[in-house]
Nucleic acid binder design. Structure first.
Ligand SMILES: [Mn+2]
Ligand SMILES: [Mn+2]
Ligand SMILES: [Zn+2]
Ligand SMILES: [Zn+2]
Lengths: 138, 138
DNA sequence: CCATACTTGCCACACAGTTGCATTTGCAGT
DNA sequence: ACTGCAAATGCAACTGTGTGGCAAGTATGG
């Protein structure tokens, strides 16, 4: 049983482990991220948390979660960040961006580091797949 | 000798081949793209073409070039599009985004299409490398 | 319970890009 | 070369995504 209060609990525990202040906004945002199988945009979270905090606080909480290493963010072509709490260690997988519904999905496929010319210092690889998700293919 | 007027000429020829109207703005923008080894952002182009056209026209010309298949655009984490005229056929190479100077470089490495779960319709793959370019490594 | 540093809400602002509309311009047809 | 007209442009206002400043509120250690 992973109902809503379970995700709230996990959020509280996570915040406590990081020695961080446990606030309404952080709990709610983190619980929503734990509950989601895919990265969520600011806009999606704002819909669901309208009565919890205002949009600026939401931006600040999300950035704080990323700074703490609790969440990570995924860039997409529509200039919107999506946030996810999957373990940072294995976040080198590809992301699929559906241009039908705009959702982003985590894929199993890993992005293998290619070689770069002499002089370049390669630090990170990101692979973005584009197309239609099962829903949008119909 | 590939001086400036040579790029202008190539731009005119390219526009003519596409049966398109040959305008000051299109010639200037396309010539700048031909002259550049790396994808250029709107901002970079605006600096160099301030006296040629205004920024809205620059946006429109760039989008038009992409629609025509003459140019293609590359997304980066800073939410800024860069534009390039390399042949569209082989534009499936990776791009390197330097977080020192913000420039984007075309790499030789190709992004190989990974397999995706049943139901997803994969149409495009983009691989973005991040790190420091030779200039910024020092 | 208190003090205080951290967090939040609200405002205004920044930046990339788009839309509406009147004016100008490239060029096909004469 | 001239003309007519669709296409391109300039300008102003607008949208969407995200940030910064600052006063008010609150979580937590003592
Ligand atoms: Mn992911
Ligand atoms: Mn390229
Ligand atoms: Zn979809
Ligand atoms: Zn650099």
């Amino acid at each position: 049983m992973t109902d809503n209060s379970d995700f709230e609990l996990r959020a509280r525990e996570c915040l406590a482990r990081h020695g961080a202040r446990i606030t309404r906004a952080r709990c709610a945002v983190l619980a929503r991220l734990f509950a989601s199988a895919r990265p969520l945009s600011h806009h999606e979270l704002e819909q669901q948390l309208a009565d919890v905090c205002d949009r600026v606080t939401l931006y600040r909480v999300l950035n704080w979660l990323v700074d703490q290493g609790i969440a990570h963010k995924v860039s997409a072509e529509d200039r919107v960040w999506r946030f996810s709490v999957e373990s940072h260690a294995d976040h080198r997988h590809a992301h699929f961006h559906c241009h039908g519904c705009g959702m982003v999905f985590c894929m199993d496929a890993k992005a293998r580091s290619p070689s770069v010319p002499q002089g370049f210092d390669l630090q990170d690889v990101e692979m973005t797949l584009r197309g239609l998700c099962p829903e949008c293919v119909q």
